[in-house]
Design a binder for these strands. Structure first.
Lengths: 245, 245
DNA sequence: CCCACGTTTCGGCGCCGCCCGAAGCATTCC
DNA sequence: GGAATGCTTCGGGCGGCGCCGAAACGTGGG
C-alpha cells in the first residue's frame, strides 16, 4: 500500500487544475499563447490579487511558465504535456453524463479552434477526413500514416516534407467536441502553420477559436474540397483590428 | 468571454480527481481492474462512509462505472479515456518541480507496471528499446511504426499480426517514471496480453505493479535479450496465492 | 427468519482555500 | 523625480468540502 508520493502529487496537480478560475486561465493559454497576468485575471473573472495567487500555485505545480517583459509578466503553458493534459480532461469532461445539465459548446469554438499548435473542431476533423478520403493518410486509433500520395499532396500544399519521408506517421487526437479524430503531431502542426502562413485562418484574441478568412474559404474549397457554405459560420466578420497578426 | 460551460465541466472533472482519497482510488483502478467499495476505502485509507461519497461523485463525473455482484459493488474506470487522463496527470505531476520534496516512485511500480492494458515502467521501456534496437519498430514522437522485420518478430512471438499488416503503426506513451517512451496502442496491448498468456508476468493484487515469473526472466532474455539480472528486483517472491491468475 | 456483512445515507463538526481590499514593489512614462 | 501602471503580498472573512459515527438499506447465509 506504499505508493504514497505519486498519488499525492497526482492529486495535487489535478486539484490545481480543478478550480474554476485556474481552469479558465489554463484554457485561455490552451493554444500555447502567452498572456499577461492582468488579462488572465479578466479571463477568470477574478481580481488581480486572486489571479496572482492562482498563478503562483500553477507555477509551483509546473503547469505554467512565466517570463518578464517590462512591467508585464507573460504566462504560458509550461509544456506540451500540460496541453495534452487539458485535452484529456476535455475529452472526459465532455463525455461525462452529468445528470441534467446539457453541455453547450460555444459554436465558435466548435466550428474551428486551435489545440496547442494544430487545428481542431469541425475544421480540424474536416481536414483529417479530407486527407483520409483522398488516401493521403491512413487513420487508425491514435495515429495516422502518410501515404506516398499524401506526401505529394502536402508538398504541393507547401509543407516541408523532408522529415516526413523517413517518418511518415503522425499522431491524431480525439476531438472533444466532435468525438472524432483530428490530426496532431508534426503533420498537424505543419498544416496549421501553413494555413496561418497563407492567411486562410486567423486566431481570435480572446479564445482558442479560429476564423476563416475569405481567402481561406476559397483555399479550403480548392485544395481540400470543402463546401464553401460549410464553414460560413466561421468566416471572419470582425474588423481585422480584433484579430491576431 | 462566453465559453463557460466547457470550462466549468473541465474544472469539475479535475476537481473530482484532485482529492487525495479519490486519486488513490482511481490509481488503484488504473490497470482496468474492478474492485469493491470496501477495498477502495482501504486503498484510500478512509472510512467506508467517506469512500462511498467519493465513489458517488466519481460516478457523477463519469470517471468510474459500477456493477453489482451479490452484496458487493465492483467499481472500475469508466473508459480508456479516463486511464489516459490519469497518465497525462502522472506525466505532469512527475515532471513538476515542486520545490523541495524529492519524488520517490515506489521501486515495485517503477520496475514494471501495467498502464491500463500495456506494459510500463522499466520493463515497458526496455521492451520498446529492444524492439527499436532490432529495427522492429521506428519510434518517433508519440508513435512507432512496425517494420517488416518487426512483423515477423511479433508473429514469431505469438502475436496476431493480421490487422497490423495494413496498419503498421501504434501509439507510444511517455513513461512517467522513466521519462522515455513505451509502447501503447494495439501493439502494446497485444504484447502485454501475450506476456500474460505465456505467464511471463503476473500483476499484483494491490497495485498496478507487475512481477516477473522465473519463466518470464528466461523468456525476456531469450526473446528480447534482457540481462536476467536486470529485472531481478521484479522477480516474484510472493506465494502464488497473493497474485492474480 | 434473523443475523452478519457490505454499502449507502444522514447529521454535524472542523479545516482548508478562495476571495477581496489595501498596501508594497517594480517598471515605465512624462 | 513623481505619477501611473502592472503585479504581488498581507490580513481577515466566509463558504464549502472532506471527515466520521450512527443508523438505514439490501443481500446472502445459517
Amino acid at each position: 500500500m506504499a505508493p504514497l508520493s505519486e498519488q499525492v502529487r497526482l492529486a495535487e496537480v489535478a486539484a490545481v487544475v480543478g478550480e474554476p478560475a485556474r481552469a479558465a486561465m489554463l484554457l485561455a493559454l490552451g493554444d500555447g499563447s502567452a498572456l499577461p497576468a492582468g488579462e488572465l485575471a479578466a479571463c477568470a473573472e477574478v481580481s488581480a490579487a486572486t489571479a496572482s495567487e492562482h498563478l503562483l500555485k500553477m507555477l509551483d505545480a509546473g503547469l505554467v511558465r512565466v517570463e518578464r517583459q517590462g512591467r508585464h509578466r507573460y504566462y504560458r503553458l509550461a509544456s506540451a504535456e500540460v496541453a495534452e493534459l487539458l485535452e484529456s480532461l476535455m475529452v472526459v469532461a465532455h463525455r461525462s453524463p452529468e445528470p441534467r445539465r446539457q453541455v453547450r459548446v460555444p459554436p465558435q469554438l466548435r466550428t474551428a479552434r486551435s489545440c496547442y499548435k494544430h487545428l481542431a473542431g469541425r475544421l480540424g476533423v474536416a481536414v483529417c477526413d479530407a486527407l483520409s478520403g483522398r488516401r493521403c493518410i491512413e487513420v487508425e486509433e491514435g495515429l495516422a500514416v502518410v501515404t506516398a500520395g499524401g506526401l505529394r499532396f502536402l508538398e504541393d500544399f507547401g509543407v516541408d516534407v523532408t522529415r516526413l519521408r523517413s517518418h511518415p506517421a503522425t499522431r491524431t487526437c480525439i476531438d472533444w467536441s466532435e468525438r472524432r479524430p483530428h490530426l496532431g503531431g508534426a503533420v498537424g502542426v505543419a498544416i496549421h502553420r501553413r494555413c496561418l502562413e497563407l492567411r486562410w485562418i486567423r486566431p481570435h484574441l480572446d479564445s482558442r477559436a479560429i476564423s476563416l478568412t475569405p481567402a481561406g474559404v476559397r483555399g479550403f474549397h480548392a485544395v481540400f474540397g470543402f463546401d464553401p457554405a460549410r464553414f460560413a459560420a466561421a468566416v471572419e466578420r470582425l474588423p481585422a483590428s480584433l484579430s491576431r497578426a
